[in-house]
Simulated scan of single mutants.
Amino acid sequence: MSADADQRTIRCLVAKVGLDGHDRGAHVIARAFRDAGFEVIYSGLHRSPDEVVQAAVQEDVDVLGISILSGAHNTLVPKILAGLDEYDALDDTLVVVGGIIPEDDRPKLKEAGVGGIFGPGASMEEAVEFVRENAPQRD
């Protein structure tokens, strides 16, 4: 039995929020996470912030990956963070965002509770390693 077999599987929700219909990146990261041994749930397209929060809470995920290319990240991501906070789930959930996020917007998102932001050109290995290193430890 390997050392990895003794570790709990990281549960991830990969979510597409808002009207953004471009989901290729979400599928690519979901596959990379699965290949890394994570348990992955995909939300499907056009989810509301509340639907994403409900799924994250109900599925008791360790990691919420939000894929957003629409430019609505400053509106939708804070709504998701606030929803997680309402359920006392924000401290127990690593939130990462992938997509087109301008450098000027990143500090505000991180201050609000986003753990990591991955833009175009980020490697799958980088994202997987970040999740492994930063996913909350639970019993």
Rank of each mutant, 00 (worst) to 15 (best):
G83M: 04
G21I: 11
G65Q: 12
G44Q: 09
A3V: 02
G98L: 06
L81S: 12
E39S: 12
A135F: 02
V97N: 04
A26E: 11
K110I: 11
E86S: 07
D35P: 09
R8Q: 07
P120V: 10
M1C: 01
R11C: 03
S67L: 11
K79G: 08
H46I: 12
M1P: 00
G116Y: 10
A15D: 08
R31H: 15
L45Y: 09
G25D: 12
C12Y: 00
H46E: 08
D50M: 12
V95A: 01
F130C: 04
K79N: 14
V61I: 15
G119Y: 03
Q7C: 01
L19K: 01
V57M: 14
G18Y: 05
V61P: 13
R8T: 00
P107T: 13
H27C: 14
I101Y: 06
V97D: 00
L90P: 05
E86I: 00
A3S: 00
Q54L: 14
G65E: 11
Q54W: 07
D35A: 15
F130S: 08
L19W: 03
L64S: 12
L94D: 00
I117H: 02
V114C: 05
E111T: 08
E133Q: 08
L76Y: 12
D60C: 15
A30N: 11
R34L: 08
N74F: 13
G44T: 14
E126L: 10
D4C: 02
R24K: 10
A89W: 05
K108Y: 06
G65K: 07
G113Q: 11
L76A: 10
Y42E: 15
N74M: 15
Y87L: 06
E126H: 07
E59G: 11
L69G: 00
V57Q: 15
A15Q: 09
L19A: 10
D62H: 13
P102I: 07
A112Q: 10
E129W: 00
E111H: 11
A89G: 08
D139K: 04
E103N: 10
R24S: 05
L76C: 11
F130Y: 14
L13W: 02
I66G: 05
A72H: 13
F33G: 06
H73Y: 07
T9H: 02
D105M: 08
E125W: 00
Q7W: 04
I10L: 03
I117W: 01
Q58F: 06
S2L: 00
L109V: 01
A3I: 04
L45H: 08
F118L: 06
A122P: 03
D88M: 03
S43I: 15
